[in-house]
Amino acid sequence: MEPTVDDYLSHQLDVSKISLAELREARQGAFVHCLERILDELDRPQDPVAGFTSAI
């Protein structure tokens, strides 16, 4: 049987009801950059693969 969204929720967090400003207040640094990337990619989807473990 294919996994459902419910199966994923235990490790994927819903932050859709929180503003970025609120999250920024909670923590600066790497966390905020990751959130900004997610928001950025909602508007401008990126190529599915940017990495190659033998190159950076």
Binding site: Q12, L13, C34, V49, A50
Partner: peptide
Amino acid sequence: VLGGHSRSE
């Protein structure tokens, strides 16, 4: 974990 998509292989 925040529901975004990986960009690394």
